[in-house]
Simulated scan of single mutants.
Amino acid sequence: MNVRRSGALACLLIAGVLSGGATRAATVEVEVEGIEPAASDLYVALCQGGLSEKECRIGQDAPVRGTVQRVVFRGVAPGAYAVAAFQDVNGNGRLDRTGLGLPLEPYGFSGETPRGARPDFGRAAFALREPGAALRVRLSRALPPR
């Protein structure tokens, strides 16, 4: 192979890698329903690989402005995600739980996560592709308010 030809081939390969490897971004719109009328904050997170705090690193919080609220995540890389949300009724910045781990504040997940069962990423997950996704999360309580 001559030098001129190998240089052109290298340029084509580099251009192909750069254009094919460009990071793509999507938008996720989450409509949260079932918010209790209380002066509180709403926390919504995108989770990858699981539903623990460690895996739910893309998050937003906002003051509650009604019983339904929309949260938008922009510039999210396509992939498999789940949404976890809760209403911080007492304002301490975390989801309070009983000694057995049951949530004391309104919470919810995307997908088909049944109430009373341990949340499962596989049941809550959705595939995010360009240009994005719109979904609903319904908050509810595991236990009645104290």
Score class of each variant (00 low, 15 high):
T67Q: 12
T23V: 10
R24F: 10
C11W: 14
S110V: 06
G21H: 04
R4K: 10
P103C: 09
A77M: 03
V89Q: 01
S140Y: 13
P145W: 01
L42G: 11
A38H: 04
R74S: 13
P114Y: 05
S19W: 14
A45V: 11
G7N: 09
P144Q: 02
G34H: 02
S110I: 10
Q60P: 01
L139H: 06
S40R: 06
T98K: 01
I14T: 11
L13V: 15
R70I: 09
E29M: 09
N92P: 03
A8Y: 05
G101Q: 04
C11E: 04
R24S: 15
L104A: 03
R138L: 09
A133P: 01
V30Y: 01
T27S: 12
S6W: 07
A84D: 04
P63G: 05
Y81W: 09
P131C: 05
L104D: 03
L128D: 03
G59N: 08
Q48D: 11
L12R: 00
R118F: 02
V17A: 08
E33K: 15
L143S: 02
N90Q: 14
A117H: 13
Q48N: 11
L139F: 05
A26Q: 09
V32W: 04
R74K: 14
D96R: 13
K54L: 04
A134H: 12
G93E: 02
F109I: 07
A38N: 01
A62P: 01
R123Q: 08
P106S: 04
G122V: 10
R24A: 08
A127P: 00
R136A: 14
G66V: 07
E53K: 13
G101W: 05
S6M: 13
A39D: 15
E130H: 05
Y43C: 00
